[in-house]
Design a protein around this nucleic acid. Sequence first.
DNA 1: GATTGTGAATAGATTCACAGCT
DNA 2: AGCTGTGAATCTATTCACAATC
Lengths: 209, 209
Amino acid sequence: MNRSDISPLTVNRLSVYLRVLRALEAEGVERISSRQIAERFNLSAAQMRKDLARFGEFGIRGVGYDVLHLRTTLERVLGLDVERSIVIVGAGNLGTALARFPGFHTGRARVAAIVDIDPGCIGRAAGPDGGLTVRDSVELETIVEETGAEIGVLAVPPEAAQENYEHLVRAGVRAVLNFAPVTLREDPTVRVKTVDLLIFVEELAFYLV
Amino acid sequence: MNRSDISPLTVNRLSVYLRVLRALEAEGVERISSRQIAERFNLSAAQMRKDLARFGEFGIRGVGYDVLHLRTTLERVLGLDVERSIVIVGAGNLGTALARFPGFHTGRARVAAIVDIDPGCIGRAAGPDGGLTVRDSVELETIVEETGAEIGVLAVPPEAAQENYEHLVRAGVRAVLNFAPVTLREDPTVRVKTVDLLIFVEELAFYLV
DNA sequence: GATTGTGAATAGATTCACAGCT
DNA sequence: AGCTGTGAATCTATTCACAATC
């Protein structure tokens, strides 16, 4: 089974199942059925079973799923059993907010570094409790090597996105999350996911009328 | 034709077409064919024509599209011909970053207010160039009335998301963009779009292996 | 008796390919 | 001659419903 045969829709639902299982685990729930999960978090039971079936058999017929077992399985499936380092490019408002975002420091994906070209912000404290310092973009190659960062986050103005994307590619990251509202000319070896925050607002505006 | 018959996938592509047309307009391009757009921004020509066809006939057979005309048409279709006010709830890192985000101040969707419950940040400057001040959450009802805000943005910690969502509903917004990684119990009259930033990272991590 | 895992059925989205205009 | 608009064809995703299993 090849990972790229799995659609992003499925992968995103796996992340949701993982959240749900962590919440249940925190509550002390040890066993649960797909139906119970579906009802509580309004998801589809059949779809969850089908999504999981792509990766193996993890449940017990007649009983349900073991919460701990399924949680660790999902972490492994999602590639979160090993630590994933993230490097953020751009220490403006969004970059800094992402560096401090609790989600980017819980679990196994965490921000290892943040860089910028502006001397005015290089050296400034960033990260959850000032645990990181904004470093100079010219050090990007070194930083990626040092930290083993595999994921780059682009939080730069649209006009700087392409060159910074290429810099991340040269520095050796293997995937890029791009917040700039532009179409990047992509390197075939580095997966890009563009997230345009304004599109979400426009989607809501559309359905307002 | 009912707007809710149009899928979010289609609506999101309309936003992309709008970006593309604005870029072309800025370059001085007056006419363009779906094929040219598709090639330059790697989109699908047939899909663009089909998406537009849901709303009318805007092109000229044998010629292509008038850039200005199509741009204004798309703005109307997306509900961006009138100004849309946004109120952000939560003036933490993410809320503040969104309040300053240039995309939220260009075009016809703009941040009209930002609120928080923490007295420590009420009164602080926010917005693109300090043009906004963080106000007290208790004023939310008044603020929504004053500004005519239709869209609320939830940038609060997960545990506070549900209550703040309900507050936004009471205050009278008609749609909510939720950045907290939780499933909200939704009011049937207020559309919710949840954007979980961590899911994007997890998606990339999945395909890394 | 309950619930998983799954083939078959349905629904939805995308692409093809061409008739219809300019 | 060239491009749009669109029905038909294809591809993808979701839901149904039940045999297999505990």
